[in-house]
Design a protein around this nucleic acid. Structure first.
Lengths: 248, 248
DNA sequence: CGAATTTCGAAACGCGACGTATAGTATGAT
DNA sequence: ATCATACTATACGTCGCGTTTCGAAATTCG
């Protein structure tokens, strides 16, 4: 399971992701600035064991059903050690999660916004369909009862992903492919929100091909197709599987 | 606070919303069918007290921070009584919530889908912006760790609302205002998902006027405006508040 | 080297909520 | 009167929380 491989964060921001304040100041280049580190140093072994155990558990059950006690047991670590560095299990989980996912967010630039956006949405769908998608849902859930966590999750996870789409959008506006009056944030909400909605509510499966349909709506509108782009015509043929028109 | 007024459900489906199986069968017209009701009948007073207490608490704090013990105390009721009729606090909360919200879902029919959809979205926004919106977020959160609850919530709350929008959409297709190749479910996800996303993540405020922008995108597309509908032109003037174009 | 400092694992703590069980009472049908 | 069921109240054992205490380990400083 690729997802489980623990990939250390680039900046090696190891300490106190939790409270937002970094306790041991770090040089962006090397390790920790050896000024006020006196006693026994933090055990990297324990840290990694905690993170690994948490990631493992996150693939097995919802965050709510994971306990600090279980993480500590599985990691072979004292509970107090975890509480020393993270304020709650949600923070441990988010920290662990970010280390596996916070790498490169591609922003394709093919010359056509339409194609770029489609690729972006497709990548997003693939991500949401993976185990990581369900874990993300756990974090959104947690955010409903913990405002501090919500803010951290928003900044560290959602925003970067949202902006990756936003960059593509902006390029489209600059190139004149997207009308400059369009509400940027709303478009980002339409794209990401619909996927997250489906992911969290589960009324219909996420599918990669939704990217095509979405782009088609964004650039063709719901109206009767008069323009008839190549893509629109292609979609037409694919469409006869009888799931629609169940009303009246 | 209007929201707190307890409005009894039409069908008076009182018993075992919980397990999905209705224990005491009810005539759709009158009260309960007097066949296998032998002992002491269920106390409607207690039931109402439980529901009222739960609704009150739901306006004060997240579902996670509400305990069965607190509900029982506030309702002046034994804990066992609650567990007798509902399997967990989430079910109590949902049941209570549905009694206040499960009334009429208007599906405006003005002759123009565009206008109908805008009105529908507007109503949806108003609902999400009310206290009920945040409570709904609690249920979506709960659904992430309880699949049975998720299914009940989907059927009893989300689906009806979704379908209210769907009916409008279908009318638009029938009248030829919406292309029949458009993916109905995806459109519903775009509308509802984006709002729920904003509600639950809180990166931007929900606003009634988003309805206009949304409809404008759906029927105009993101493309450079060549058609220039009346509404599009109106939006243009409104647009100079400088919040956009923060990139480069 | 030795003292000071800090972290570590393990264990125990008090707290609060869970979901169940028991006891005694209340309310109806038969 | 008897039976069946629901009610309140309370107690129970279990679990997870977040904190505290302990002695041992690891590192810096004098």
């Amino acid at each position: 399971m690729v997802f489980l491989k623990v990939i250390p964060m680039l900046q090696s921001r190891t300490t106190q992701l939790a409270s937002g304040s970094i306790v041991v100041p770090k040089d962006d280049q090397n390790r920790s600035i050896q000024s006020e580190s006196r006693g026994r140093p933090r055990s990297e072994e324990s840290e990694e064991a905690i993170v690994a155990a948490t990631l493992q558990l996150l693939t097995e059950k919802p965050l709510r059903d994971i306990s600090m006690e279980e993480i500590a047991r599985k990691a072979g670590v004292g509970k107090a050690t975890i509480y020393k560095w993270w304020p709650s299990k949600a923070y441990v989980a988010l920290d662990a999660f970010l280390r596996t996912t916070n790498r490169m967010l591609p922003t394709p630039d093919t010359g056509s916004v339409r194609r770029d956006i489609r690729e972006r949405i497709r990548a997003m769908m693939v991500f949401y369909m993976s185990p990581a998608g369900h874990i993300m849902g756990q974090f959104v859930a947690e955010a409903q009862s913990d405002k501090e966590f919500a803010s951290l999750f928003r900044e560290r996870f959602l925003k970067p992903r949202r902006e990756a789409t936003g960059i593509i959008f902006d390029r489209g506006v600059q190139r004149g492919e997207i009308d400059h009056n369009i509400d940027r944030e709303l478009v980002l909400d339409l794209i990401h929100g619909s996927a997250i909605y489906r992911l969290m509510v589960g009324h219909a499966p996420l599918e990669e091909k939704l990217a095509d349909e979405m782009v088609s709506i964004f650039f063709g509108g719901l109206n009767k197709r008069s323009l008839g782009t190549a893509e629109t015509r292609r979609r037409t043929a694919r469409k006869f599987r009888g799931t629609r028109r169940k009303t009246k």
